[in-house]
Amino acid sequence: MIPIDRARLSELAYRVDFDRQFIEFTKEDASTLNAAAPLLLPIITDIVEGLYEHLFEWSYTKEPFTHRNTGFEGDLKSIDDLSLDDPQMLLRKKMMTMWTAKILTSDYEDPKTFEYMDKVGVMHTGVRSFGRQPGFAHRENKEPLFIDLQALSLTLGWVTDVVLTIVMSFPRTTLSTSKKMAVLRAFNKVVWIQQDLFARHYTRTDEEAAVNLARINAEKASEQEKERIAKEEEEEAVEDKLAQLAVKDLPDVSL
């Protein structure tokens, strides 16, 4: 059994090393992605266009694009007026194109690759950097960008499905069946590592969760106590009012 120091999973290098071991992402997987890059890079633009068309189908996944993105200083449009060709969206699509290209071309033995993927996770959490979080330099002191983890996870799932469909559609003269399987397995593994590097900035450890739960319970108890006191005061006020009315209604028995 391989020992894992749970406390060290907050360290990026240690966490990624465990991710790679567990999911069995090897040097061969990395080489497979790099080798497939010439086939997939020319169609990344189409993949990204399809992704954003899909995201625009629901208000939940379109609404985040109505907020200002780092590097964009133009006018923002409402959710109803925003189109895929607006400057704000062109910038977003450029960033997604860059991420997809990096997944295919990066050196996975270089720690900077996973530092980049981790920063992608940080920048979507709504956390301001101000030197506290290892976010991108261009987000220092900027308005926070927040995207729900659910939306991020579904986006990765959609992209994975599209890449699977594209790779499987290549003729065997271009890519043999065994190589198709190798590309898809490698891509899937990297996507799950990225998913973990999203999740680690959204979720808490058991200890942190326990502290947070205790705080929530304390706040709930405090609110319940306030409600109890308010109810008692209300009941006392009603009783006092009834007592006053009863005194007024007593017959005059003075001689």
Rank of each mutant, 00 (worst) to 15 (best):
D107L: 07
L55D: 01
G131N: 06
Q150K: 11
K189S: 06
G121M: 10
P64T: 01
Q194P: 01
K189Q: 09
S169L: 05
K119G: 06
T160L: 13
E28C: 01
H67T: 14
P251M: 11
I23V: 15
R132A: 12
F146L: 13
L145A: 03
Y202A: 14
D5P: 08
E53R: 05
P87N: 03
L245D: 13
K27I: 09
F187I: 01
I216D: 03
K77T: 00
D75E: 15
M117K: 03
K77I: 02
S129P: 02
F65P: 00
V211G: 00
A137S: 04
P38C: 04
Q244D: 10
I229M: 09
A210G: 01
A243F: 14
T97D: 12
P111F: 05
G157K: 09
L184S: 05
T66I: 10
S10I: 09
F114S: 05
D19R: 03
P251C: 06
I79Q: 02
I4D: 13
K142N: 04
A35D: 05
M168W: 03
D206H: 10
D80A: 12
T26C: 02
K180M: 15
D249R: 15
W99L: 13
Q195S: 12
M1F: 08
F136G: 01
L41R: 04
G74L: 13
Y202Q: 12
F136D: 01
P64D: 02
L76N: 01
F72E: 01
E225I: 06
L41D: 00
H138G: 03
N141K: 12
Y14P: 03
K189M: 08
S78H: 04
N212R: 08
T70Y: 05
P87V: 04
M123Y: 07
L90G: 03
P134T: 06
Q194L: 13
T61C: 05
L250N: 07
F72L: 05
Q21F: 14
A182D: 05
A230M: 07
L156Q: 07
L90H: 03
M96N: 01
D196N: 11
V122S: 05
Q88F: 06
E53H: 02
L91D: 02
L164D: 14
D80L: 10
F72W: 00
S153H: 10
L12T: 04
N34W: 07
V120R: 00
D85V: 15
I4F: 07
F56C: 00
A151E: 08
S222D: 11
F170H: 07
T70S: 14
